[in-house]
Design a protein around this nucleic acid. Structure first.
Length: 461
DNA sequence: CTGGGGATGGGGCCC
DNA sequence: TGGGCCCCATCCCCA
């Protein structure tokens, strides 16, 4: 018996059922256009729908409705046609948006097909050497090419092979070059780039949020656990816990352990964290680098286009840096407060401003203060300067000023019981008695200003 | 409610 | 190529 064409006929049957609206139990509203499909098929095709439907499958009697305003109906038409046929109608005009939508929907195979499509175009372009990037419809032979997965999708290099039954999230696994670190474009990015489509913020029509997770979370199962799906009426919403700034260290502990040795360790840690971004960038597909122009306006110089927005940069390094705004990756935590930043220079600036009282300006009267005319005041982990007049006015000049050693300035908190809660800058010495410091006005600490902060640079500048 | 200023994010570009 | 600086836009807090 020949079963080789069974799956083909089965898919054709499902497609026919979809087109005739038979047994469709999932409604997808895209730009006001309603698509009907089978949740089983969507579940098997998209990691996004897999996660969504796996948590809303209790109510099997009610059709699940998902609303998307972040890509066009035409784009979703291409994707749903692929889901039910295995053929992807790609063109130079829709490949970017299809790939972006596929990334959103966690359809690795579609992403890879788009990559292959673009790569082929780049190869052709390289051979032609005419300076024109061949992703437009000027090439009739490539107009709306149907990319069939058996040809270029499943067998590609780097193509995810984790579409096994046991794969919960299913699509963008850690081996995928597109999702090694939780590669989820932010919705704002889509809204601002995909033809500037507006996104409905009304609760009743709120589109499904993509999983927004800390960049350190790359496990699809963890994403699924952290999500919450609610159904209001016929609309399903996915709510993700917001954990944008997980403190790298407890601030009270940091207050006691800031040493020069650890500054060096932190720099190494930053380097390791940055390596993650390097790896991400290294595994980016060919689409990242584009020669010539993108679209109708030809530019003579080389430009690199972000695959998730319309932004173009001249240097690959700038694109790498730009990509962090899409990945949400924040590899540089402030060692004092735990807030995370996308760039080392930002955390340095933050530390100097917030924790080092780097600005010689009185916080109260905004006047310039010097070592003689002002003092550093500490409020929790924040440090700032006040001129002596303002200090006198706010009445904190009665606080004791303690300096253990003129050559080794130490910030001393008020009260004898807090003497061990020092923001210790002694080289190589770590005093660790974690104790929460209440950030109230009563904790205002005054110490001698020492502008020669050679020993207290929190970050190796 | 509004304006000002600080904090932060991101792009360009030089070294 | 990465680090760093400069600049500008945006957000947010506070008076």
């Amino acid at each position: 018996m020949d079963f080789s064409s069974h799956h083909t006929r089965l898919l054709q049957q499902l497609d026919e059922q979809r087109r005739r609206d038979l047994f469709c139990d999932c409604h997808i509203l895209v730009e006001g256009k309603m698509f009907k499909a089978h949740r089983n098929v969507l579940f098997a095709s998209s990691g996004y729908f897999k996660m969504l439907l796996s948590q809303s499958c209790r109510d099997v009697g009610e059709p699940t409705t998902a609303t998307f305003d972040i890509f066009s109906a035409d784009t979703f038409t291409a994707i749903i046609d692929y889901v039910y046929s295995g053929k992807l109608p790609l063109s130079g005009q829709n490949v970017i948006e299809v790939m972006s939508a596929a990334s959103y929907l966690q359809m690795t195979d579609v992403i890879n097909v788009c990559k292959e499509f673009i790569k082929s175009s780049l190869d052709i372009n390289e051979k032609d050497k005419d300076g024109f990037f061949g992703l437009s419809d000027r090439e009739p032979w490539r107009h709306h090419s149907d990319y069939s997965l058996p040809k270029v999708g499943w067998g590609m290099n780097n193509c995810s092979s984790t579409r096994s039954d046991g794969d919960i999230a299913g699509s963008l696994d850690a081996s995928s070059p597109w999702n090694p670190y939780g590669f989820y474009p932010r919705r704002n990015d889509f809204s601002s780039t995909l033809n500037d489509r507006s996104i409905s913020q009304r609760t009743s029509e709120r589109p499904i949020e993509p999983p927004q997770l800390p960049s350190s979370t790359c496990c699809p199962e963890e994403r699924a656990k952290g999500s919450k799906i609610t159904e209001t009426g016929s609309t399903t919403k996915v709510e993700m816990p917001h954990d944008e700034y997980p403190p790298a260290m407890e601030s009270e502990a940091v207050m006691n352990c800031w040493t020069a040795t650890q500054q060096k360790d932190m720099t190494k840690s930053y380097q390791n964290r940055a390596t993650k971004a390097d790896e991400l960038y290294a595994t980016m597909p060919t689409i990242m680098g584009i020669t010539g122009s993108w679209g109708e306006d030809a530019l003579p110089s080389m430009r690199f286009k972000c695959p998730f927005c319309t932004h173009m940069v001249k240097r690959k390094a700038d694109l790498k840096r730009h990509l962090r705004c899409h990945t949400g990756e924040r590899p540089y935590p402030c060692q004092a407060c735990g807030k995370r930043f996308t760039r080392l220079e930002h955390v340095r600036s933050h530390f100097r401003t917030i924790h080092e009282a780097g600005k010689p300006i009185c916080r109260r009267c905004k006047r310039h203060v010097t070592e003689e005319t002002g003092q550093v005041v500490q409020d929790g982990t924040r440090r700032f300067r006040l001129c002596r007049e303002c200090l006198a006015e706010v009445g904190v000049d009665s606080f004791p000023i303690e300096v253990d050693d003129e050559d080794d300035p130490t910030i001393v908190l008020s009260g004898d019981e807090d003497k061990e809660q020092m923001w210790n800058f002694h080289d190589g010495v770590q005093q660790s008695k974690p104790k929460r410091i209440e950030e109230t006005s009563s904790d205002l600490i005054i110490h001698e200003v020492d502008d020669s902060d050679d020993d207290i640079k929190p970050i190796l500048c």
